[in-house]
C-alpha cells in the first residue's frame, strides 16, 4: 500500500467517530475492524460539562492515527483557521480538508479547496483534501502541495456507493503514484471492496458503520471487504468481455448426438 505522507498504514480502513450509539460501541467498532485512522472534529466546548475532554481520552485510548477534519467550513478562512486550531489540539499536521460549496450534496467548493490546500501546505500541514473525481482539480491540488487525494464516492452520508466509476478509474490511472482514498458515500462493504478492487489505497467512512444496527459488526465487515478488495487488486483481475468464453475445455468432449 502507498504510504500517507510517509506513514504506512496496516490496512485501508479509515473510520469516522460521529453518530455512534455510545462511546463504548465506537471503541468496539475500532477494535473489531482494526481501522488505523480515526477522523475527528472540533466544536465549541462548554466550561461546565467539558464533554470534549472525555471524548479526547476515548480517542487517545484507541491508539490510532488521528485525522482532524474541517467539516462544516464553507470558506477558505474558516477552514484554514480551523486547521490551525486542530493542529494544536490534536498535535498532528494531518488535516482532512473540507471546504463545502453546496448544501444539498455537501459537494466541495473545489476552488476554495485548492486555495486552502495551498495555504496549509505552505504552512507545513499534510493535507488530505476531500475533493471530487475531477482530474483538473486533482492536478491543481497536487501542485498546491497535497500528496494524498480523497475523492468522494457519493455525497456524504448518502450510502450510494461509487457514483462515477469511470471518473474514479480514470483518476487511479491518471495518478498511479498518489495515495487515493474514497471519502464519503459508501453504504455497504461491497462498495468498499469495489473501491479497493479499482486500486484505491483506502476508504474513509462513518455513517455506514455508525448507523448500522450493529456498528461493530459492520465495521468488521467493512474491514474484511477492504482486505478482500485489496488482495484482489494485487492479484491482477481479469478483463471483462461482452461475449461468453467457455471455461471448461472443449477439446476432448465426447460426441453424443
Amino acid at each position: 500500500m502507498r504510504a500517507f505522507y510517509g506513514t504506512p498504514l496496516a490496512n485501508g480502513l479509515m473510520l469516522g467517530t460521529a453518530q455512534y450509539p455510545s462511546p463504548a460501541i465506537l471503541a468496539d467498532a475500532f477494535k473489531r475492524s482494526g481501522a488505523g485512522v480515526a477522523t475527528v472534529s472540533l466544536r465549541r466546548e462548554s466550561g461546565q460539562d467539558r464533554a470534549g475532554q472525555d471524548f479526547w481520552t476515548l480517542i487517545r485510548d484507541l491508539d490510532v492515527h488521528v485525522l482532524p477534519n474541517t467539516a462544516g467550513c464553507h470558506s477558505v478562512k474558516e477552514a484554514v483557521t480551523t486547521a490551525h486550531m486542530a493542529r494544536e489540539v490534536f498535535e498532528t499536521s494531518w488535516i482532512k480538508l473540507e471546504v463545502i460549496g453546496e448544501e444539498d450534496t455537501l459537494q466541495p467548493d473545489v476552488f476554495g479547496l485548492v486555495e486552502a490546500a495551498r495555504i496549509l501546505s505552505e504552512d507545513g500541514f499534510q493535507v488530505f483534501p476531500y475533493t471530487t473525481e475531477d482530474l483538473v482539480v486533482a492536478d491543481k491540488l497536487l501542485h498546491a502541495g497535497c500528496e494524498v487525494l480523497m475523492p468522494w464516492g457519493a455525497p456524504i452520508g448518502s450510502g450510494l456507493g461509487l457514483n462515477n466509476l469511470f471518473g474514479l478509474r480514470a483518476m487511479r490511472a491518471h495518478f498511479p503514484d498518489v495515495p487515493l482514498v474514497i471519502d464519503a458515500g459508501l453504504g455497504l462493504p461491497s462498495q468498499a471492496a469495489q473501491a479497493m478492487e479499482l486500486g484505491f489505497d483506502a476508504v474513509l467512512l462513518n455513517t455506514a458503520v455508525a448507523k448500522a444496527g450493529d456498528p461493530a459488526a459492520m465495521a468488521e465487515a467493512f474491514a474484511m471487504a477492504v482486505q478482500a478488495g485489496q488482495i484482489a487488486a494485487q492479484a491482477d483481475p481479469m478483463e471483462p468481455r461482452d461475449m461468453a468464453a467457455p471455461s471448461t475445455p472443449v477439446i476432448g468432449k465426447a460426441f453424443l448426438e
Binding site: 460521529a18 467539558r50 475532554q53 479526547w56 482532524p68 477534519n69 489540539v89 456524504i156
Partner: peptide, 10 residues
C-alpha cells in the same frame, strides 16, 4: 472568543 475542543467527526 471561540473555545473549541475535540469532538466526534466523520
Amino acid at each position: 472568543v471561540e473555545v473549541l475542543a475535540p469532538m466526534q467527526g466523520g
